[in-house]
Design a protein around this nucleic acid. Structure first.
Length: 885
RNA sequence: GCGGGUGUGGUGGAAUUGGUAGACACGCCAGAUUUAGGAUCUGGUGGCGCAAGCUGUGGAAGUUCGAGUCUUCUCACCCGCACCA
């Protein structure tokens, strides 16, 4: 019996000639990898490092197809890089804080920690059944006391650096989850998780100064060529940098309107505009409902108050906004135009946002669509100040605002300037007058991280009546969550717990209270990739030396849904940690691969609603419900989701076909960044290929046991051609690995094994003295090239081929350039670009000879009988195109 | 509305980046094999045509000896943002 590091080859009765048994093979190799710690990563000075990272899962209890795809891709990259002799770090862990654990605890009257750790145990088994090459020694969950401890520590370090602050803020309140949401977590005015309509509420909140890094986050994108354009565009738009001018209007009329003299604050109004070139077209101003001038007006005028109220109660849903009419309320106050001295009305308008710029805008109806609509509704003058090429604009007849480029008119000393130049000239004019200056504005706002939830990491702060906000001293960390809580969903147990929040102020020693908010769970995912580098570090959040050895992440793999949220927070947090000396590099993720969704048809029965795939019978393209025989509507092909029942459980797939088949299918069915349509027969195809491969290699080993892979050029031309195919395949698969088009890599190997199978079954050259070594080379190459896709079966076949050791020690094959040299090639002959004939010529044929041969070809001669040749284009090695008429 | 992307056989998808369109697979058709494991093997398979051939990459035009690939316009679908001044 053969042995390999204590692992037995399949027993005699079950060996070489027997069928491919994935369950046996996979269990065997998973145990071997585990026992021998094959994928343990330790820094090594001799090898180039490679850090591959997959987005860690939330421990929901079961893996889904999205995980399988994500981790199959990540593992393929890890194994490929190992074969390229790189020292690979491929870690995994658990994004373990969050609301589902609390909801489950409420439902089951248990504790979130128990639910979470039970789920992790279940999911770990599932992940292990996939045969992923993780360094499991680095595994952690973000709810581990250790991880929470060092996160609190980092929070305090950033607080010291003045990157964290607290302020009262109007927040997005999710009434179902009873918590605050960041702007990024509000989608179409609804909570990203609960789907409930978000309300506005004013609360004291902790913020990270992400806006301080807005410019670097924006510019950093340019240094990331390995990121998809879509993600970079989304982040660019999210940051929303704009150049403009901020200036102040003098405000008058307080006495007339309110019967009161203005306070200094009330007598001016700051506005921000990106269009200073249209300054002479300003005919009114508008302010947000929350603007101080609006509030002032409301104080004296109940109708204004009513109007403001109606603004705030309008929904923020997509539809509501789209149909929302432009409405305003005239404050009666007048703004003084800074250049003309003209008095213009100031309105409270329902479409002005308090949270962007200054909450007040100068309105130019002729050149801004919103202002145009507003002016039409309230009969405000429209003044054209930019004239584009073409027809003359007429303020009386124009039906929409002109927002294009052009020359200035009706603009006094600025007349005839082109508007781009005017932006600068006028900005300077503001500066000279001392009432305004060029400003940069961002759409991005600071990251609010306070959450009124139990199952999160406590914010390590103390509120003292005397001293105010005081940070918890580092030596008192960690602040653990209380274990003795009962979750009801009504109120945060950290608030209601009898003792947890009570403490003494570190400054004055008086009784004080802890901050009861916990941190946004995006905090945990903002530095987990750093903690992976030194997961056991006991004295600090990070071991800087180890972190700097492994960082940055060379390849990050995950879902596109994190394009803005997680990926922007993580970039920011990383840069902040860089600035407190925790890590050296500027960007955490050099290359980003965003995999597409796994989708499946949805089935809907008129009686039973959404059906599971096995609840409908298919015949002739029609589906019937197995329960009621009614016709089933086949809905759109959609992302697999529990609510639509269009899910396939990866565990069933792995139990039935094995992990290798599941992985192969996932990687073969589509390029990784594209959506993947789930298709049962595609799985069968992958399964059959692995069986064919198995049989082919068993056949080769049977016939040519002991043959050494060939290293020279075979004499027989069929064998030479086959060897050419082998090396062409190495070249193609290598290229596909580098360009991350894994589906075509598999195709290439399939072509190669098909060619090998053909030679064997044809039987013509199987007795050639070199046949064995050519086929043995093919077998070896097939095994190694496929190892990143299907690790278990390739290990088993490697061993079956009599190889010492395991594939962890193998190296990616090298192309023998001699093997790629072809004796003859096929040349296409076209007439006027249409295919007319093919020539088989020696590979080294000269241009002239090729032209001659093409023109002498029978079919070509026949086709040229009635026309005159005008020109002949010869592309050596490819084609000849004859231009004739 | 703005920004980004995608349209190729019955299906998933290829096409060395301007040079044989449809690789590889699924499905289907025909045949072989008394066929023990989700069969396997051989051949065929874009459309039209008996054939030579014609035609064909959402549509229209253009550049080019030559266009799935480049340019312009247009249609459809998908994703993101959405009154950001």
């Amino acid at each position: 019996m053969l042995h390999l590091n204590g692992v037995e080859l399949m027993s005699e009765s079950d060996n070489q000639l027997s069928r491919y048994n994935p369950q046996l093979v996979e269990t065997k190799w998973q145990e071997f990898w585990d026992k021998e710690q094959i994928f343990r990563a330790t820094p090594s000075p001799d090898q180039e490092k490679y850090y591959v990272l997959v987005m860690f899962p939330y421990p929901s209890g079961r893996i889904h197809m999205g995980h399988v795809r994500n981790y199959a891709i990540g593992d393929l990259i890890a194994r490929y890089q190992r074969l390229q002799n790189r020292n690979v770090l491929n870690p995994i862990g658990w994004d373990a804080f969050g609301m589902p654990a609390e909801n489950a605890a409420i439902q089951k009257k248990s504790h979130p920690a128990k639910w979470t750790y039970d789920n992790i145990d279940a999911m770990r088994i599932e992940l292990k059944s996939m045969g992923l090459s993780y360094d499991w020694k680095r595994e952690f969950a973000t709810c581990d006391p250790d991880y929470a401890h060092w996160e609190q520590d980092l929070f305090l370090k950033l607080y010291e650096k003045n990157l964290v602050y607290r302020k009262k803020a109007l927040v997005n309140w999710d009434p179902v989850d009873n918590t605050v949401l960041a702007n990024e977590q509000v989608i179409d005015g609804k909570g990203w998780r609960s789907g409930a309509a978000v309300e506005r509420k004013e609360l004291s909140q902790w913020f990270f100064k992400i806006t301080q890094y807005a410019d670097e986050l924006l510019e950093g994108l340019e240094k990331l060529p390995g990121w998809p354009e879509t993600v970079k565009t989304m982040q660019t738009n999210w940051i929303g940098k704009s150049h403009g001018v901020e200036f102040a209007f003098k405000i008058k009329g307080h006495k007339e309107v309110f019967g009161q003299e203005p306070t200094p604050e009330d007598s001016t109004m700051d506005v921000y505009t990106t269009r200073p070139d249209t300054i002479m077209g300003v005919t009114f101003c508008s302010v947000a409902a929350e603007h101080p001038l609006a509030k002032l007006t409301a104080k004296y005028n109940p109708k204004a108050q009513e109007f403001i109220h109606s603004c705030q109660s309008t929904g923020t849903s997509e539809e509501a906004l789209e149909k929302l009419e432009k409405k305003g309320f005239d404050t009666g106050l007048k703004a003084i135009h800074p250049f003309t001295g003209e008095e213009i009305p100031v309105f409270i308008a329902n479409f002005v946002l308090m949270s962007y710029g200054t909450g007040a805008v100068m309105a130019v109806p002729a050149h801004d669509q919103r202002d145009f609509e507003f002016a039409k509704a309230y009969d405000i003058p429209i003044r054209v100040v930019i004239q584009g090429d073409g027809e003359l604009l007429d303020s009386q007849t124009m039906t929409e605002a002109y927002v294009g480029p052009g020359k200035l008119l009706n603009s006094a000393e600025f007349d005839n300037l082109d508007n781009e130049t005017a932006k600068q000239t006028i900005a300077q004019a503001f500066d000279k007058k001392g009432i305004g200056r060029a400003t940069i504005n961002y759409r991005l706002r600071d990251w609010g991280i306070s959450r009124q939830r139990y199952w999160g990491n406590p914010i390590p702060m103390i509120n003292c009546k005397k001293c105010g906000v005081v940070p918890v001293p580092v030596e008192q960390l960690p602040i653990p969550l209380p274990k003795d809580v009962e979750l009801t969903g009504a109120e945060n147990p950290l608030v209601t717990h009898p003792t947890w929040k009570e403490c003494t102020c570190p400054k004055c020693g008086d009784a004080a209270q802890r901050e009861t908010d916990t941190m946004d769970t995006f905090m945990e995912s903002s530095w987990y990739f750093l903690r992976y580098c030194s997961p056991d570090e006991q004295n600090a959040p990070l071991n800087t030396q180890e972190v700097n050895h492994w960082m940055p992440v060379d390849q990050y793999v995950g879902g596109i849904e994190h394009a803005v949220l997680h990926l922007l927070y993580a970039r920011f947090f990383h840069k902040a940690l860089r600035d407190i000396g925790e890590v050296d590099c500027d960007e955490p993720f050099i290359n980003l691969l965003t995999q597409g969704m796994v989708r499946k048809d949805t089935l809907n029965c008129p009686e039973h609603g959404w059906l599971y795939p096995n609840e409908a019978d298919e015949s002739k393209g029609k589906y019937r419900c197995v329960k009621c025989e009614k016709d089933v509507t086949v809905g759109r092909n959609e992302k697999m989701s529990k609510s639509k029942n269009n899910v396939v459980d990866p565990n069933d797939l792995i139990a039935g076909y094995g992990a290798d088949t599941a992985r192969l299918f996932m990687l073969f069915a589509a390029p990784p960044d594209q959506d993947l349509e789930w298709n049962e027969s595609g799985v069968d195809g992958a399964w059959r290929f692995l069986n064919r491969l198995w049989r082919l290699l068993v056949d080769i080993q049977d016939r040519y046991q002991g043959a050494k892979p060939i290293t020279t050029t075979p004499k027989n031309s069929a064998l030479k051609k086959l060897r050419g195919k082998v090396h062409e395949t190495i070249e193609r698969v290598t290229r596909d690995m580098e360009r991350q088009q894994y589906n075509t890599g598999i195709s290439a190997v399939m072509e190669m094994t098909n060619a090998g199978g053909k030679i064997l079954s044809a039987g013509e050259v199987t007795d050639d003295p070199e046949a064995g070594s050519v086929l043995m080379e093919l077998a070896h190459v097939a095994v190694i090239l496929l190892n990143p896709y299907t690790p278990h079966i390739t290990e088993e076949l490697w061993q079956m081929l009599g190889q010492e050791g395991h594939l962890g020690k193998a190296r990616w094959p090298k192309v023998d350039p001699k093997a790629l040299v072809k004796d003859e090639i096929t040349i296409v002959v076209q007439i006027n670009g249409k295919l007319r004939s093919r020539l088989i010529t020696p590979a080294d044929i000269s241009k002239e000879e090729l032209e001659k041969a093409a023109l002498a070809d029978e079919k070509i001669v026949a086709n040229l009988a009635k026309v005159t040749v005008r020109k002949v284009i010869v592309i050596p090695g490819k084609l000849v195109n004859i231009v004739a008429n």
